[in-house]
């Protein structure tokens, strides 16, 4: 394809735009809903001092002023203070406290997914196990999280934020995330069918006749698609982390977002949504980079030896 660079460029563009777009969309939503923006952000039934709040958040000067001020502060890592989750505490502190737990959780949850992807790439397990995988794929995260929480509470109730209890909690939560909502079965079935289709290509047959392994030939061609699949799995994990962290009681970023939503803490929610967008944007950028490298690799002309050049002549 002549215009191979269009797709990675579009992805990179989206990656750059996403962190700017998410607060912009939230701002647009606040101003498009009927009513006073300050009252939408903080309903009078639970908030006092609406005018002060509007002035402090630049809500009284229109959407552009609000967006511009918030973005310029956010670029300096100033997300303001929490209104209700921990009143008066800087949001950046809350995030710094919770993000490591979520990253550890996502890291552990990627283990079953990675194992599943590798198994799928080697056409394992056989199709006889498909019914089990399909069953696993319909297990909702809330049900598995309940089971994980029950196991943890039964055995490690009252354990603190460190030691064995903490790690068992993290492992249980990670296993839940890595299996529920089709994460594990999707990675196995997705990779298996992708490699199965690629193995049927003619170039793979020729490479086998030349004594090469089919995996070393298919992998460079599938790198972009594999990274894309991985990216969407991580985004799915970030999404599921909100539920798992609350139910299994992990003090993570997802749980912070949930507390912010429940307690109408707009400062926390806006900052958390932007950070989630930044994480997603980083992944998108990485996918674009892999796609560029893959295309450059595919288009690299093989170096011909003198003898082979003579043969061609």
């Amino acid at each position: 394809m002549k215009y191979w660079w269009i797709q990675p460029s579009a992805r990179a563009l989206v990656a750059v735009a996403l962190p700017l777009l998410v607060p912009a969309l939230i701002t647009a939503l606040i101003w498009s809903l009927p009513g006073n923006p300050a009252e939408i952000i903080c309903p009078p039934s639970i908030c006092t001092g609406g005018e002060e709040l509007a002035a402090r958040w630049h809500l009284d000067q229109g959407p552009w002023a609000f967006y511009g001020h918030w973005m310029s502060s956010a670029l300096q890592l100033d997300f303001g203070d929490s209104w209700r989750v921990l009143t008066g505490r800087p949001v950046i502190e809350l995030m710094a406290q919770t993000i490591p737990n979520t990253l550890i959780l996502i890291g552990f949850a990627l283990i079953p997914i990675t194992v599943g992807s590798v198994l799928g790439a080697f056409q394992q397990p056989s199709k006889r196990w498909d019914s089990v995988l399909v069953f696993l794929s319909v297990l909702p995260v809330v049900v598995l999280a309940l089971l994980a929480a029950a196991i943890v509470e039964l055995n490690f109730a009252g354990s603190g934020d460190d030691g064995l209890g903490y790690w068992v909690r993290m492992m249980a939560a990670a296993l839940t995330l890595g299996i529920a909502d089709g994460a594990l079965s999707g990675s196995i079935l997705g990779n298996r069918s992708m490699f199965e289709q690629e193995n049927q290509q003619r170039y793979v047959g020729i490479s086998i006749l030349r004594g090469e392994s089919n995996f070393s030939n298919t992998l460079p061609n599938l790198a972009g698609a594999l990274v894309g699949q991985y990216r969407s799995r991580i985004v799915q994990l970030l999404s599921g982390a909100v539920i798992v962290e609350v139910i299994v009681r992990v003090d993570g970023f997802g749980a912070l977002l949930w507390r912010g939503t429940l307690m109408q803490d707009f400062g926390v929610v806006l900052a958390a949504a932007t950070v989630f967008a930044c994480l997603s944007s980083g992944l998108l950028f990485f996918q674009a980079l892999v796609e560029v490298l893959q295309n450059l690799h595919q288009r690299r002309a093989p170096k011909l030896t003198l003898e082979s050049t003579e043969v061609v002549r």
């Binding site: 996403l18 985004v235 999404s239 929610v269 997603s280």
Partner: peptide, 17 residues
């Protein structure tokens, strides 16, 4: 597709009257 779905849902849930 790049947005974590639950995050979007929570933002909408927060902002809905």
């Amino acid at each position: 597709g790049a947005l974590p779905r639950m995050v979007v849902i929570l933002v909408v849930a927060l902002l809905l009257p």
